[in-house]
């Protein structure tokens, strides 16, 4: 593994640090995750299938995946608008708003959960006017959707922002000097070069929303089959000591998020080959 077999490498400590890293990694991450998969193998395929396709589980998965996807779409669009404003325009408090984008990252999910819930409750600052319009947010799927938008905001912004900053201004000037309208330049020249970053941001926001628990459960209402997300169903099954059910749902979610992360990695590799770094 190190420089040459049987000989030393110049810098010391490879064996020690690598050994301890692998040990710690195994104890904290690999063994616990392996335990999860082992537990799944205690189920027969029929049992597994039965759990995963039971009405309540299926609905919870649909709600989690469906609303996460929708929220990530909103984040994709709004994230692009926010990045555009932050990078391209100068306006009062720009830096403040730039910093604010990170709050959903930094704010503990439980705090976000109670805050959103209180904000959109029927007497809340936003809940009251919305209720007057006949829109009920808190304790409905819309509430879940709102919470998922909240936690996804930084992903699109923070992946696209550096790419837009580094975009060569000459490309736009060239397009404009060739007679392209601004509209044409933005949609045919700039946005296509942001696509890898946009998709990466979308995928990250999507993955995060699927697994999200704290910021969602307070506003969700948690009505089985209507506003119950998959992570909550895992918690409920655990509290009922139905470990097998909890494990099966967890495996489905875990595989889904691994697939998304895999897609993100492929995306980034694709972006690197498509747009070579200088």
């Amino acid at each position: 593994m190190s420089a040459t077999a049987g000989r030393r490498s110049t810098l010391p400590g490879f064996g020690l640090t690598m050994g301890l890293t692998l040990t710690w990694l195994s104890v904290i991450i690999l063994i616990p995750l392996a335990g999860l998969f082992l537990k799944t193998f205690e189920l027969s395929l029929d049992q597994f299938w039965g759990i995963v396709t039971s009405r309540r589980t299926l609905n919870a998965l649909k709600i989690s995946f469906g609303l996460s996807f929708a929220a990530a779409l909103v984040n994709l669009v709004m994230g692009t608008v926010i990045v555009w404003a932050l990078v391209r325009y100068r306006f009062p408090a720009r830096r403040l708003f730039d910093a604010i984008v990170d709050i959903p990252f930094a704010l503990p999910t439980a705090v976000a959960g109670v805050a959103l819930s209180s904000l959109f409750a029927q007497q809340g600052w936003l809940g009251a006017p919305l209720a007057a319009l006949g829109i009920k947010v808190a304790f409905t799927p819309i509430g879940i959707f709102i919470a998922m938008i909240f936690i996804g905001i930084p992903f699109v912004v923070r992946t696209v922002q550096p790419v837009l900053i580094d975009l060569d201004p000459e490309i736009e000037e060239a397009a404009a000097s060739l007679g392209a309208s601004r509209w044409h330049t933005v949609f045919r020249v700039i946005l296509p070069s942001l696509i890898p970053a946009l998709l990466t941001g979308f995928a990250l926001a999507f993955a995060r929303a699927i697994g999200e628990y704290g910021s969602v459960i307070f506003i969700a209402g948690n009505l089985p089959n209507v506003s119950e997300i998959a992570p909550l169903l895992i918690v409920i099954r655990l509290s009922e000591f139905r470990y097998a059910d909890a494990t099966a749902i967890a495996v489905v979610m875990l595989v889904a998020s691994f697939l998304i992360i895999f897609a993100v990695n492929r995306l980034q590799r694709w972006a690197q080959t498509r747009i070579p770094t200088h």
Binding site: A3, T4, R7, R8, S9, T10
Partner: peptide, 10 residues
Amino acid sequence: RIIAGLDWPD
């Protein structure tokens, strides 16, 4: 680098 001991010969 080999003379310095920063690399090791095969």
